[in-house]
């Protein structure tokens, strides 16, 4: 089972790498926001997979926090881009 989880982890990291290239290239800021959001979701899944890979599924609390924080960060950036003000 550990092999399957390790392969999944590597494919998630490959996905992060490709999305990261798009975040570095741009060209518009919306591409970057989209890439950050996709990397955030992939990281949440990666945290869960890593928890099972280590045999400690207690790490799932971390993934719950991440899923919420990632959404908040995306909303903050979008409010800045769209309305030029926060809150």
């Amino acid at each position: 089972m550990g092999t399957v989880l390790t392969i999944t982890m590597f494919s998630l990291m490959a996905s992060i790498l490709m999305t990261l290239v798009r975040a570095l290239k741009g060209p518009t800021s919306y591409d970057r926001i989209l890439s950050v959001n996709a990397i955030g979701t992939t990281t949440v899944v990666g945290v869960v997979v890593m928890g099972f890979l280590k045999g400690r599924p207690d790490f799932l609390d971390l993934a719950v926090v991440y899923a919420l924080v990632n959404f908040v960060a995306t909303v903050a950036i979008l409010r800045f881009v769209e309305q030029r003000r926060l809150g």
Binding site: V4, L5, I7, T8, S11, L12, A14, S15, I16, L17, M18, T19, R22, L34, S35, A38, T42, V45
Partner: peptide, 15 residues
């Protein structure tokens, strides 16, 4: 997990 890895990889290639 294989399906999820495939979707993650193709999503990365597509982005």
């Amino acid at each position: 997990l294989a399906l999820g890895s495939f979707l993650a990889l193709t999503g990365g290639v597509g982005i």
